[in-house]
Structures are given as structure tokens and as C-alpha cells.
């Protein structure tokens, strides 16, 4: 079966998604920076599933390299999933523009850069799917993480526009909005157990929703309703709250 390209493949969510696709018979391109760290993971996947698994170096912030990266893929992937992200340090970012820039560029600019290239190719081929992992944090800005949230909001808007553009080309675009997930990114945080998903759970949801060509996926599903409520709070009230 065709290759799936996983971008940001060292992320715990990405690894779980990679397993899910390989278990369903897909071959994999795993792209990440310092990709050597994925060597053992890739061997494991190959042995467990018998699928082809290739690891590729990709820095999402090295925009110039993206075109070559994609051109060098001998067999173009049948679909792409991006899990790159950077939560960053909100407080630091408020006074250190380098941190702000890193948050925005990792979560948004970098993904837009590589997705543009892939979208153009898929549009011509009239096939393929694109999945971007955004976040519920992009649904409304909060003081605790609005730099991350705003970058994810940009990504969410980008994916929505891309979906609109590629609809006629039969290319499906899906936006994934996880709530809390137990990963490296949230290690050490005190997360409410009932609202927190394991990476494997997110991966199952993503695979199933992508196969069904869903447009927007909240995972866990309850976040859809939580965010509905949060979005409905009037701004005059929201601005006084600490959530």
C-alpha cells in the first residue's frame, strides 16, 4: 500500500499514529529533526508490521529545505500527517521575541511551508489526504498560552482554507484538535484524568476519522462540547476569567 508521510515523527502522538497506519498496512516515511533517534522505533515498526519504514531528516523551521525534501521522495506519499508543535513558555515569550517567534514558526509557518508544497502536488494529482494536528488551544485565546493558541488558531484557519481549496481536487484535509494528551509535551503537568487521552487513543481516532474523511476531529470527543461552551462565553465575561 502507499506511503504515509509523518512529519514531527518523534512526537508521542506521531509515533502512535505511525503504528496505527503501519498496522493497517501502510508503508511509512518518518520525518523529524535528529532523525537518528528514531532508528530503534523504525526497526521495531518494520519487524512488527513487515512494512517499509524510511526515516528522513526534516527541520520544520528550515523553510528553504522543504521543496527539496519533498522532491527527493521517490515515491510520493498517499497522505501526510503533521504532528510538529511547540508549546513554548508563554511567560518567557511575552518578553522574549525569539521565543514568540519559535512558537509561531514551529506551530504555523513551518507547517504552512511544507503543506503548501504538498498541497500543490496533490491538487495536480487529484488525490491524497492531509492531516494537521492543531489544538483546542486555538479555539479561543487564553492568558496562560495565547501565543501557542494563536499559532494553532492560524493553523486551524489555514487547514480550513486548504480544505475548501482542495475539495474540488478530491484531496481531503482534516484538522485534528486534541484536548489534553499524555505525552512529552505535557509531562509533569497535572492533567485531569477523565479529559486526558493516551497517544494511542488519539491515533485510533485520527486513523478512523481520516478514513471516513471527517473534516474536524476533536479528541477526546468531549472536547467538542467543552470548547463549544468555552467559545460561547461572552468576551466581557471571558476576559475576567482564569481558565
Amino acid at each position: 500500500m502507499s506511503y504515509i508521510l509523518i512529519i514531527g515523527a518523534k512526537s508521542d502522538i506521531a509515533k502512535a499514529i505511525a503504528r496505527e497506519y503501519a498496522n493497517h498496512g501502510y508503508d511509512l516515511y518518518l520525518a523529524a529533526r535528529n532523525v537518528a533517534e528514531l532508528k530503534d522505533f523504525a526497526s521495531d515498526l518494520r519487524i512488527r508490521t513487515g512494512k517499509k519504514v524510511k526515516t528522513l531528516d526534516l527541520d520544520i523551521l528550515d523553510f528553504e529545505s522543504h521543496r527539496i525534501f519533498y522532491e527527493n521522495l521517490e515515491e510520493k506519499p498517499g497522505g501526510v500527517v503533521s504532528a510538529v508543535g511547540y508549546l513554548g513558555d508563554q511567560e518567557k515569550a511575552q518578553s522574549d521575541f525569539q521565543e514568540t517567534k519559535l512558537i509561531i514558526e514551529t506551530n504555523y509557518t513551518g507547517v504552512a511551508s511544507i503543506f503548501n508544497i504538498i498541497a500543490n502536488d496533490y491538487e495536480q494529482r487529484k488525490s491524497g489526504f492531509m492531516v494537521g494536528i492543531s489544538s483546542v488551544a486555538g479555539d479561543r485565546g487564553r492568558k496562560s498560552n495565547y501565543l501557542y493558541g494563536s499559532a494553532k488558531a492560524a493553523l486551524t484557519a489555514y487547514l480550513s482554507g486548504l480544505r475548501n481549496r482542495l475539495h474540488n481536487a478530491n484531496v481531503h484535509v482534516m484538522t485534528v484538535k486534541p484536548g489534553f494528551v499524555r505525552t512529552k509535551m505535557t509531562a509533569g503537568m497535572n492533567l485531569p484524568a477523565r479529559l486526558t487521552a493516551e497517544p494511542e487513543e488519539v491515533a485510533r481516532d485520527v486513523f478512523r476519522a481520516q478514513q471516513k474523511r471527517k473534516n474536524v476531529l476533536y479528541t477526546k470527543w468531549i472536547w467538542k462540547w467543552i470548547m463549544l461552551v468555552i467559545r460561547m462565553i461572552p468576551e466581557w465575561q471571558f476576559k475576567k476569567m482564569s481558565i
Partner: peptide, 17 residues
């Protein structure tokens, strides 16, 4: 730590975490 690292079909040697 449960990754499979390599398997040699000819000798049956499995390298595993």
C-alpha cells in the same frame, strides 16, 4: 522499553529490548 531492534531470518537471532 519494548522495541524489536533486528531479526536475522537465517539464524533466528532476535535483538530485542
Amino acid at each position: 522499553k519494548n522495541y524489536f531492534l533486528s531479526f536475522d531470518e537465517s539464524s533466528g537471532l532476535l535483538h530485542v529490548q
